[in-house]
Every structure is written in C-alpha cells, then in structure tokens.
Design a protein around this nucleic acid. Sequence first.
DNA 1: ATTTTTATTTTGTCTATCCAAAATTCCGGT
DNA 2: ACCGGAATTTTGGATAGACAAAATAAAAAT
Lengths: 223, 223
Amino acid sequence: MASATVEDYLKHIYLLEQADMDNPVAMGRLATTVGVAPGTATAMIKTLANAHLVDYEPRGGVRLTSTGQQMALHVVRRHRLVELLLVEVLSLDWSLVHHEAEQLEHAISDIVLEKIDALLGYPTVDPHGDPIPTAKGHLKYVQPVSLTDCKPGQQGRIARVSDQDTQFLQFAERHRLTPGMGITIDAYDKYGDAVTVSPKHCDSVTLGTNAASKIFVALSKKS
Amino acid sequence: MASATVEDYLKHIYLLEQADMDNPVAMGRLATTVGVAPGTATAMIKTLANAHLVDYEPRGGVRLTSTGQQMALHVVRRHRLVELLLVEVLSLDWSLVHHEAEQLEHAISDIVLEKIDALLGYPTVDPHGDPIPTAKGHLKYVQPVSLTDCKPGQQGRIARVSDQDTQFLQFAERHRLTPGMGITIDAYDKYGDAVTVSPKHCDSVTLGTNAASKIFVALSKKS
DNA sequence: ATTTTTATTTTGTCTATCCAAAATTCCGGT
DNA sequence: ACCGGAATTTTGGATAGACAAAATAAAAAT
C-alpha cells in the first residue's frame, strides 16, 4: 500500500501532466506543487522510478507509467468523491472542500469509497466540475468545445475562456462564466446570433455568438 | 498538531485507563495494544512526557495529564462520530466500522467533525453504545442503573448483565440484551411485575422484575 | 564562443518512528 | 537474604521523508 506521501506525488504528477498536455513534468514544478524542496522531489522520484510508477530521465522530467497513472487516478477518484460528499451530504462550504479532501483522500478504503459513490448516485463530476474517474480508473475524456457548438439542453463545465481582454474576463467573471463552473445551455438562436446559458445556481446569461465563441465547454456525457 | 501516531498512543492510553479503573497503564500492555515493540513504546512515552501529555514514572506506568486526556477525548470523539457516520449514513456493515474509523479519525478536521455531529443530530453514543465525548471534551458519565429503576420512554445502552448463570446469559443473548446494545424502555408495569424493553432494531422483550434487576443500563441524557 | 543564469542533482544532516537484542530492575518464591 | 523470571529500559541500528547548501548541467544571453 502506497504511503500518503507517495499518493500525493502521483496525484500531482498526474494533474500536472494533464494541465500541460501530457508533457513530462519538470522537477521544480513538481517540487513546488507538492510543497517540498527540489532535492526532496528528486530523491522521491528516484524511488518511484525504481518501483516502476514513473519514467524518469535525469533532467528530462517525470511522467507516470500506466501503473502509476492507475494509482494516481484512484487517488483522484477518492479526492473528488470526498469533495462531493462534503458538499452534498455534509453541506460544507465549497471553498473549504478541496483542503479537507486533501487529508481524507488518503484515509478512505475502497469499501467506504464505493459506499460514498453509491450514496451520491454514481456522480461523474465533482463540485468543481472535474470528472471523477471510475473505480477501474477510466476517465471520460471530453474535448472542450466552443459554446457556439453546443446545443440547447446540454450540460457541462467551462473549460477555458480564451480571451485576454480584461473587460471580457471581468464580464465573464461577473456572470460566473469561469473555468470549472458547471453550466446548462438553455437556448441557441442561430438567427438571433445569441446563446443563453445558466451557470449552476446562478442567473442565466445571454451572449452574442462572438462572445460565445470564446468560451469553451467540456460537455458532460449525454444528458 | 499531534501526529497520527501520537494520537493513537493517547487514545489507547485513555481507553486502557478507562478499562482498568484509572490505574496507570503498564508499558507492555500499551505496547501490545498500540502494536509496537516494548522499547518503542517506552521511547514514545518519554517524548509524550516531555510534552506534558502524560505523567510517567519509569517502571510505574503511564497516565494521561489533563492536556493529554483532552486530546485523547478529541480523538475518541472523532473515532466514534465517524463510526456512527459510517453506519448511519453510508450503511457500512457495523463489523467493519471500527477498523475503518481507525484511519479516518486522524484525517477529520474540526469543521468537518462538527458537520458530521450536526448531520447525525448530536448523538451521544456510537454504534457500540460507547459514549461520544462533546466538542469540549466532556463525557457524560452515566452510572448504570438497574432496569427496575428505569422509567418508560428512557433510552440507554446495556452496561452490564450481572448474573453468572449460563441459562440466563443465553436468554439475554437471544434477546439481544447484551452489553453495549442500545435499548428503549417501553413500559414498566409495577403491579404486573414486568418491564418491557426494545433493543435497537430488534423485537421487544418483557422481563419480570426479578430478571430486570440483573440488567444494568447506562441511560442517555433525558430523551 | 564565452559567460551568466536557471534548473536539477548530490551530499551531508535531521527528525520521527520503528525493531531486535542486551542490560537492568523488581517481585515472588525459597 | 538470595535467585530466577517477567517486565521494562537501554543501546545500536534501520527506514521514510525532509531541508540546506554545494556541485553540475543545460539554456540564454552576450
């Protein structure tokens, strides 16, 4: 059984790989996200490499092996299911949930985990809209699509807001159109040049296709 | 913040003190219940004594200081609330809960703990009938009273069955009148010489006062 | 092509926790 | 008063994980 420390390294490597298009993860980056000195990370990575959980080229970065990825996904699953449990069942403020789950993810057995999964109705996304891997470590990969490519009724979460303009970002922020937010597409009026969407728990917004094209959504599986 | 290891030592010292009428806890006993070699326990106890969490006389055993006891109670509270959560909310088989809670008790923050407490309706006993310390570390000590001293409507858990007769013990066993079991007093008919009680989740039983006088109950606070 | 900067790896230490086995102390039986 | 065994403490050593600071390699800038 992997220690909590090892689990943390694996999880962070996984998340960093994801966030950087599957490129190998640089040591410095890993060290700071795990929260240790660089030398510490190097040492740990060597032992992970010995255990065949990562592939490691000195000065070339790390990347998970398939065994390592499997384990990482298992940690991520625990993390996200716990987050959801804390929000949905214990009504914990969602800003606190991530931090709490950070501890709990290492203390949940498989048996308890499956009970949580069942209690929550086998959810597919956590409170941030991030996908929850299945027990077998499968993750539904969703290529984000522009809002202009969505159809009414679809649901998903905002994956990216591709504009650097402060005004636009502030507008998006004001209407809760921020990455991670779960949204529903209410209407798409091609001729009226407008898309109406509802961010979860917030008022709906109508955007021109021009603006809508800058917002990318990861759709949930068929709703 | 105390490490999980330290928390475990404190918890076990507390439980052993309780189980042995507040006598100081012998090293060997402590070592085996914590699951370490005797020398390891001695070493740890020295550091706990330095931190003023225990009083320690070489070869005289250990006993918690009031600070140590406070911390131990906090761990016990987490343990027992988690057990109850697992049973009541996640419907985990109760034979598994103790083991699971053993891990989780070290990963629950105060915030989450109070949410659990609230969700469960501020319970006073765990699934085994053991009392749950309050957030401030108070434990309602309940002097067990004979069933013949109970009034209808009262609830509690069986503390003791004071008879050595096998027949009687088997009778008690059959009707789930075993130590730790939570029960409700349904009726007490003084003139009919009978007490009727319902063990939790089981059929009610009616006992003559003769038998009832042999069964001692730790009553929950006013229900 | 050098020099400078930055990232990474090494090296030497530290703490917490554990074990095994030797040394000690105490207690009951003679 | 003495001895033997049980409990306890010491001693010596191991492992996981972490840091700081020196050494090195690679990348950038001149």
